[in-house]
Amino acid sequence: METILSYLENMFLHLPRTSEVLRAKEELATMMEDKYNELLAEGKRENEAVGIVISEFGNLEELSEELGLGDLEQTKETGEPVKRVSRGEAEEYISATLKSIRWIGLGVMLCIWSPIALLILGTLDESGMFMFTDAQYVCYGLVPLFVMIGIAVALFIYHGMRLERFEYLKKEPIEIDFWLEKQLRQMDEEEHASFTLKLIVGVMLCIFAVLQLLVIASIDQNEMAGGFSTAALLLVIGVAVCVMVSGSGKRECLKVLLQEGEFTKKGKKSSKIIDIVAGIYWPIVTAIYLAWSFTTMDWGFTWIVWPIAGALFGCTAAVVQAVTGGGES
């Protein structure tokens, strides 16, 4: 009987403790207990009886209306038009994102890896061990760079388009029903450990990448060691970012659906502003990068534009969020 009661307890775990809910729980417990006792009296074994009682319990969602959980409070609060998200849509969104996020992570990794070939060529060239012609530079350095960036951009565009139909979830106020919310919160709890693990792995890799650069730079002043070490830094950071991006997919979805973090109603307003800023910012950065690179032909160094631009953009976004009051719940 304890198994049955704890099953029931679990089903009611996250429900508000209103009198309707408590009454339903009590009544359901009585009915289940009666059935359990009768099954035992019929000669069923305990396990069997528990199994039957639980399998015939039904579905709590059936009681939404009776328990006063039919509507969400949010609609009443604001009166704004709110899009209701069904369970099917939510599940589709999560599975589509999980599929795409791996490829997007891979794309980011390719972007970070793209200057590695050039960097190595430049290092070898400067060391005096090899001399490369311009044609060789283009062939073994620039071609891999543009091929990698090309593949990455293709991945971003393709998967961005695949996920485009879910954009409204991030940008417009949405609501989900009580049961879906409960299920999502449970998923969030389950996801937490694996997300944290991936984050730790990613951060450790980043720290390791920087550390090896520092160590090598301090013990060996040789230009060549420094160049290879920088290449290794990009290699490892690429993997780390890929792990973190793809690892964050599910959590990000849950945050979107539960409207937490930057996806609260206020946060959605500031993300619109950030979108506009990004639309101007990144083309300018790209123009600067290409102009600088082609005028100096110093491709082994100009990639530094990207990390700096990324960091600056992060600052801008944070400022916009702070000013518009988004990001807080």
């Binding site: 339903a24 359901l28 009915m31 319990f57 039904g58 579905n59 009681l63 009776e66």
Partner: peptide, 14 residues
Amino acid sequence: YIMKETTLYSAFTR
């Protein structure tokens, strides 16, 4: 026909 507990309770309240 076996009526599930939740179905039954829902019917009672209704």
